[in-house]
Design a protein around this nucleic acid. Sequence first.
DNA 1: CCGCGCCAGATTGTCAACAATTTGGTCAAC
DNA 2: GTTGACCAAATTGTTGACAATCTGGCGCGG
Lengths: 220, 220
Amino acid sequence: MPRPALAETDISAQLREAIARGQFSPNERLVEAELAERYSVNRAHIRTALAVLDRDGLVVRLPNRGARVRAISDAEAMEIAETRLAIETMVARQAALRGDAKGRASLRRIEKDMRRAVTQSDAALYSQCNAALHRELQRMAGNATANRILNTLKSHLMRLQYRGILLPGRPRASLAEHAAIVKAVCAGDADAAERAMRKHLTSFTRLLKQAIEATRMGGF
Amino acid sequence: MPRPALAETDISAQLREAIARGQFSPNERLVEAELAERYSVNRAHIRTALAVLDRDGLVVRLPNRGARVRAISDAEAMEIAETRLAIETMVARQAALRGDAKGRASLRRIEKDMRRAVTQSDAALYSQCNAALHRELQRMAGNATANRILNTLKSHLMRLQYRGILLPGRPRASLAEHAAIVKAVCAGDADAAERAMRKHLTSFTRLLKQAIEATRMGGF
DNA sequence: CCGCGCCAGATTGTCAACAATTTGGTCAAC
DNA sequence: GTTGACCAAATTGTTGACAATCTGGCGCGG
């Protein structure tokens, strides 16, 4: 059986998840003693977790003044989306080149579920499929480095969604984009896969930009 | 005056640097008590630093068995180089779009120094200029997210160099590539900048692949 | 009424002691 | 000789105590 994860690693992950889900507001103070009690660990673990999250950019810490949930500016949200685009287009390419038959079958199945979600107007299902599709592409690409980075970036972007700044997207419009990605990856056409992913994420980025300009948020 | 960095953050940076410079061998055990003495801090700080470096992928930790310098496989070295390429091409594009006059002047000056380094066969100077050039491009692009990621990736790649797996590059050959990047960025031509950077890093990646196949290293 | 210094409480930063676990070696039994 | 139990040293994991620092409010003097 696999050795259990270190408690510290575990706490980092839990806190990361909680912040990504918007359970803490931007700039909210993260008091070590409180968190230690809430997660039933001692302060040392919380301290370590906060240091890790600081490195991830989810938290800022000021000497002697503790940690806060990092507020992300409009400009930075765009940066994150652009960086994600750069990496994920590479992932799409690699998935097309290195993907296995099992992965391709998964993609097709996910696409089918997406179509069903659209016809049934099931936004939750679509969102779930969307996540599954991107996850499967990452798995197929088999680029652990890229995956780690992408997951961190996504936890930032997830905050937008949970804070209602970014809507779950428009299934009908993005379905075609997703289908194009699946088609290209399954055909093993790296260039087409990259193009399709770029197109998809460019429209995501455009959406984000609009949302930002609409809400004129001061950080999330 | 700027508030001093947290001791923990500082120790993480020092350890990261030491590992990047090859002062610890792959798989070498990192005993907390030893490091605490070496860096004149207590074990708690070292523990935290190790957790951060674990997240960075520079270290692996096994429960009750401590931390080791992470050995990076051939395949993973390629992954890292590819991911770097994906991000840095974006940085080049953004530098072309958003760079300021001061940055462009810096680039030109660095290019001049590079030429001098080549004519004088000063490998150390060239290497220094190379780092300065990439750093300046990052600054011009102003993408803090990308910068953070790139710096982490570079600390991995630096290990290759310090371990003698990857030579400092061949100045004469790469000078032209660098010049092309500078030219495109200074002209504000984003597409050309991206292409030039892609070309440059593609040859870097090719070089890495050859080095890997030559040494058949089992991890670094 | 307003500003300023100062105090108390809250919180972070530091440290050392102790508990739990792993590791490597020794020794006895077969 | 080999196997296996056991022990001791090394190391990691956990915890609590204490020191240092910040924060907000109170009262004093202007």
